[in-house]
Design a protein around this nucleic acid. Structure first.
Lengths: 150, 150
DNA sequence: TTAAGTGCGTTTAGTTTATGGACTGACTAT
DNA sequence: ATAGTCAGTCCATAAACTAAACGCACTTAA
C-alpha cells in the first residue's frame, strides 16, 4: 500500500498518520514545541540527515503545520514556526510524553516535564470528555460511525 | 543517527517514538483498540506487507505493548492483545484522532467517532491537568527538567 | 483420499527511502 | 583575506519496504 493513500482515509487516526507517521516528523514537532525554529538547530538536536530534514520540513509546511517566517534577507533565511494547526498537536504531544514517561522503562535521572502555569504544578495530563468533564478510560469508549457529531 | 538509540533518551517523547515511531506501528495499535487481534485481519485491514507486519508485531510484543495469547494448538496460533501498557496509549490515540478529525482537511461523509459510555455523548476529548482539572493549552505549559515529580 | 481452504509466516527479488559526508552559495565577523 | 555561519543540495552506499510466491500444519468438503 502506498503511504499517502491514507490522506483520504475514513479514519481520523489514519489521516493524522499520513502526515505524522514517519520516524522523524513527530520529533521535529517536539522540538518546535520546545522553541526550536531553525534548520541547524533541528539538525544538531536530532542528528538526522539534512536531506531528510529538508524533506520533512517541506512536508510540514505544505501540510500547514509549520510556516516559514523570514528572519533575514541576503540570503533569505527562515524560521519554522508552528501554525494554529500545529499548536493543536499539543494534546497529542502531552499524552505521548506522559506515556513515554510512565510506560517506557529506562530511568534517566532527569526527565523533561511540564509546568502548568495556571496552577503552578508539574503537569500530569489526562484525557477528559468535553461533555461530562470526566476522565476518559479505554473501557468506557466505543467506536461508532458518525455523520455529524451530536 | 541510529533509530533505537532513542530508547534511552532523556525525553519521554523520544522514548515513546523509539517504539511507536514508524509508519505502521500506530496504525496496528489503532486496529488493536478497535478489537482486531489476528495476523490476517491486520494485514487485510492495513494492506501492509506481511514481512513488516510480522516485524512490527514482534517488536510490540517485545516492548510489552501486546501479548500473544494462544487460541488454538496444532498448529499453535496467537491472538495479539493489548497489555495494560498498550491500553495506556488510549489517550494518545484519542488525541491523535481528534487532531486528525478537526485539523486535517478532507471530509469523508462518515467518520469514526467514539461514544463515551459513562455519559452517553459522542466524545470530544481534551487534555486536562491532574492537579487542577482545567483544560491544558499550549501557551500555559513550560518545559522543565525535573527530578522526581511534585 | 484427494482437493481445497485457513492462518501465519518465510523467501526472494526488486524498488524505494534513508544515511552520512562532502560540497555550494551567500553572506558576516575578524 | 580568512574563517565562520546557515541553509541547503548532491551523491554513493546502506537499510527498509514491497508484492508475490511459497511452505507448513493443520481442517473441512467432496
Amino acid at each position: 500500500m502506498r503511504w499517502r493513500d491514507l490522506e483520504t482515509a475514513d479514519c481520523p487516526i489514519a489521516r493524522a498518520m499520513s502526515i505524522l507517521g514517519d520516524r522523524w516528523t513527530l520529533m521535529i514537532l517536539r522540538d518546535c514545541f520546545f522553541g526550536v525554529q531553525r534548520f541547524e538547530a533541528f539538525q544538531a538536536n536530532l542528528g538526522l540527515s539534512r536531506t531528510i530534514l529538508r524533506d520533512r520540513l517541506a512536508h510540514l509546511v505544505e501540510a500547514g503545520i509549520l510556516v516559514q517566517r523570514p528572519y533575514q534577507d541576503r540570503p533569505v533565511r527562515y524560521d519554522y514556526v508552528l501554525t494554529a494547526k500545529g499548536r493543536a498537536l499539543n494534546g497529542v504531544m502531552l499524552m505521548l510524553g506522559e506515556w513515554g514517561r510512565t510506560a517506557v522503562e529506562g530511568q534517566p535521572e532527569t526527565q523533561i516535564r511540564h509546568r502548568h502555569q495556571t496552577c503552578g504544578h508539574i503537569l500530569t495530563p489526562y484525557v477528559a470528555c468535553a461533555a461530562c468533564g470526566e476522565e476518559v478510560v479505554a473501557k468506557d469508549v466505543r467506536a461508532v460511525r458518525a455523520i455529524g457529531s451530536v
